[in-house]
Simulated assay, not measured.
Amino acid sequence: MSERDSGSSGRARATTQPTARASFGAFVRKPVERPVANAEKAPAAQEMCAESAQSWPDDAVEVGAIVDAYGLKGWVKVAAHADAGQGGDALLSAKRWWLENGRERKSAPRLQSKVHGDSIVAHLAGTADRDAAFALRGYRVYVRRSDFPALNADEYYWVDLLGLDVVNEAGVELGKVAGLINNGAQSVLRIEYPATGKDGQPVTDERLIPFVGVYVKTVDQAAKKIVVDWEADY
C-alpha cells in the first residue's frame, strides 16, 4: 500500500519509509514527466457560458487560480495548487474548466494547456485575445473530481482523504482527517478530535500522523476509514 489545503485536492502516497519529495501545493511530487495535453477543438457552440449554483457540478474541486494573461492570443496563466504530475495534471486533461470569482460563475472548454515554468498556461474557448484573457484574472479554477487522472493503487488524492475516520489497530477512534500537510519529506495527516480544555469546556484538538506505511496500515475509502499504528496518547 502505499489541492494549499483549502478544500483542494492533492495526491499522497503511503510509503514504507519517508522519502524526500519536492512538492507544489497539496500534492507530493512524483518523478514522472507529463506531455503537453491538447484537447480536441470544441465545437463552436461550446463556448464559454455562464453558470449558476444549480448548474455547478457537485464534484467540482478547486485546483488553481488565473493570475494573468499569457501572450496575445487569449491564453491565460494559472497558478496551480499542485504541479503537473502530482494532480495538477487535471488542468492538462479536463476538457472543461469551471471558473468562479465572487458570485460570478462560468465554464469553458479547454482548448489547449501546457506546463510553463512553475505554472500552467491554457487557451479556453471564448478568449480570443489578450484583453479577454486578462478579464479572467482572479478567477479560481475548478475541475470535476471525475476528470482527475487515475492514480496507482497506493496513491490517494488529498480531497478523498478529508473527512475519513481514523482509528488505531486496537479500534480506538483518533478523530477525522481535517487536512494534510506537506513537510518536504512526506504528507502528514492532520486529524481533529473532540477534547476538553483547561477550563473544562469542549475544544477541538489535533494529531499529526505521517502518511507513511510504517504508521498508515490501510485506507478504506468505501468504509471512510483509515487504520493507523498510532496510540491515542502519542
Rank of each mutant, 00 (worst) to 15 (best):
S146G: 12
W230F: 10
A133I: 05
R105L: 07
G138Q: 07
S2I: 11
V63D: 13
A153G: 14
A82E: 11
L162Q: 08
V67R: 13
R207Y: 09
K225C: 14
S8Q: 09
G126T: 02
G179A: 08
Y157A: 08
Y215C: 11
D5L: 07
E231I: 01
T218H: 13
M1N: 09
E62W: 00
A39F: 04
V36S: 09
D118F: 02
G138S: 09
G200P: 05
N38M: 02
A37K: 04
G74N: 05
G213Y: 07
V141L: 11
S9P: 06
L91R: 03
R34Q: 06
L189V: 02
S113A: 15
S146N: 14
V121C: 11
K73H: 09
A69D: 14
V121W: 01
G10Q: 03
Y156R: 11
L180Y: 07
S52C: 10
E100T: 07
V32R: 12
R110Y: 07
D147R: 05
A170C: 10
A60R: 02
V36N: 04
A108I: 04
I209T: 10
Y234N: 15
R29N: 12
W158M: 03
M48Y: 00
L189W: 03
Y157G: 05
P18K: 01
A90T: 08
G88L: 01
E231A: 14
V76A: 09
P109Q: 11
S6E: 13
Q46I: 06
R140W: 03
E33L: 10
Y215Q: 13
A37E: 10
A82N: 03
P35S: 00
V166R: 02
A53K: 10
A53Q: 14
A133R: 03
P57I: 02
A79C: 09
T196L: 12
G88K: 05
K30V: 01
V214S: 15
I226E: 14
A44C: 06
T127S: 15
A84M: 07
L162C: 01
P149I: 01
S8H: 05
K225I: 08
V166S: 06
L91K: 04
R34H: 04
Y193P: 02
R137G: 02
W75M: 06
I181W: 07
L189Y: 02
L174A: 06
E231Q: 15
E40H: 14
T196S: 06
T16L: 15
N183K: 01
A20S: 13
D131L: 10
E173H: 12
A50L: 14
E104S: 12
V203H: 01
G102Y: 08
L136S: 05
D147F: 09
V216K: 08
P31K: 02
R130K: 13
H81I: 00
R137Q: 13
A22W: 09
D58S: 14
P210N: 12
V115H: 04
P43N: 04
I191N: 04
S107Q: 15
V216D: 11
E51Y: 02
V177L: 11
G200K: 01
T204P: 02
E231K: 13
D5R: 05
D68C: 01
K198E: 14
W56D: 08
L136A: 09
A82R: 08
V28F: 04
R137E: 15
D233T: 08
